[in-house]
Simulated scan of single mutants.
Amino acid sequence: MNEHPPEWLHPPDLKRATAIQRAIADAVELADRIGPVVRVAGADTSMKWRDSRGPIHAAIACDDGTVGQATRIPPFPYVPGYLGFRECPALVAAWETLVVKPDLVLMDGQGRSHPRRCGVACQLGVLLDVPVIGVAKSLLCGVVDGVLGADAGSTAPLVDRGEVVAMAVRLRAQAAPVYVSIGHRVTLDTAVDWVRRLSDGRRVPPPVRGAHEAANAVRIAHGLAMEAENVDIL
């Protein structure tokens, strides 16, 4: 894992968190630095519905079937635009449980398509120093420039304050697009190419779907364990 100041995972307050996001954004590598890709993974988190203080359950699901997982109490309050500080401690812990690390990660979330160019995919990529692609299902900033075609494979740039920060990519005809952005150590063209290459014709690529399912499974297992523990205590 990349060396970084401890507060990059645990900022003391919102003001420092803002400054840290800008520092991480400056540390993001926008060029391709990817070795041979043998193992691809998806990364995602899950939490109990509307429970902003409860634990975050993270999963990094590799395409060989191995899953790194972790559950952590988020050290940072829920603030839109700062979700990386809630999710990354659990994601980093999940990464550390993997014996064999993936060569490329598709993160369910924003990368450069963020007001301060530091979505969770950027934070995770810089913290771990691994190639990460952001694959988001909704917009946080910017507008799609031009018309996105209805056919599978259609793309259109997402522009925020004059900068292309992501690409809207339709992976299934007529379905809503995903928004592909740079996380770390990939160009936008490379990120889009990988998402297309990994697509199986559904709206969301398999690595992201697999991570979503794995994170939900971690949350459910944790809930069942807590229920069993309470029953034993009673």
Rank of each mutant, 00 (worst) to 15 (best):
D63C: 06
G68M: 12
R39T: 13
I34G: 05
M47Q: 09
A59P: 07
I56K: 01
I73C: 03
A61W: 07
V40P: 02
A70D: 00
V38G: 15
P55E: 09
S46V: 04
R39V: 13
G65D: 04
A58G: 04
R39D: 05
S52K: 14
R50G: 08
A70S: 13
C62Y: 01
W49S: 11
D51S: 01
D32S: 12
V67M: 09
Q69T: 14
A41G: 07
T71I: 12
A41F: 07
G42S: 11
K48Q: 10
I56W: 02
D32K: 13
L30G: 09
G42I: 04
P55S: 06
D51A: 00
M47E: 03
A31D: 13
P36N: 07
E29P: 00
L30H: 10
V28W: 00
A61L: 06
W49H: 10
G68V: 12
A43T: 06
K48G: 00
D32W: 09
P36Y: 08
P55D: 03
A41V: 09
V37H: 07
R39I: 13
A27W: 10
A31H: 12
A61R: 13
T66R: 14
G65N: 08
D26A: 15
H57M: 04
I56H: 00
G68W: 12
P55H: 03
T45Q: 12
V28Q: 05
P36C: 05
W49G: 01
A27F: 10
A41H: 08
P55Y: 00
P74A: 12
I60E: 04
T71L: 02
C62Q: 11
A27P: 06
T45H: 04
D63W: 09
C62H: 01
R50P: 00
Q69K: 15
V67T: 15
R50Y: 10
C62D: 01
R72N: 01
I34F: 08
M47P: 01
K48L: 12
Q69D: 08
G65K: 10
D51F: 01
G65I: 07
R53P: 00
D51W: 02
D51T: 00
I60R: 11
D64A: 08
D32L: 11
V38T: 15
A59H: 12
V67G: 04
T45G: 07
A61S: 14
M47A: 13
Q69Y: 08
D26R: 15
A58D: 02
G35Q: 03
D63P: 09
A59I: 05
I34V: 14
W49P: 03
R53L: 11
M47G: 08
K48N: 03
A59E: 05
G65E: 09
S52H: 12
T71Y: 01
W49C: 03
S52Y: 13
E29N: 04
D63Q: 07
D63H: 10
A58Y: 01
K48H: 06
R50C: 10
T66D: 06
T71M: 08
G68N: 11
V28C: 14
K48M: 11
W49F: 10
R53H: 13
P36L: 12
D26L: 13
A43W: 04
A70T: 02
D26F: 06
L30A: 14
D63S: 05
V67P: 05
A59K: 05
S52F: 15
D63E: 11
D63T: 05
E29C: 14
V28S: 06
A70E: 00
G65H: 11
R50D: 15
A70P: 02
I60V: 14
R33C: 14
A61T: 06
G65M: 09
P36V: 07
L30R: 15
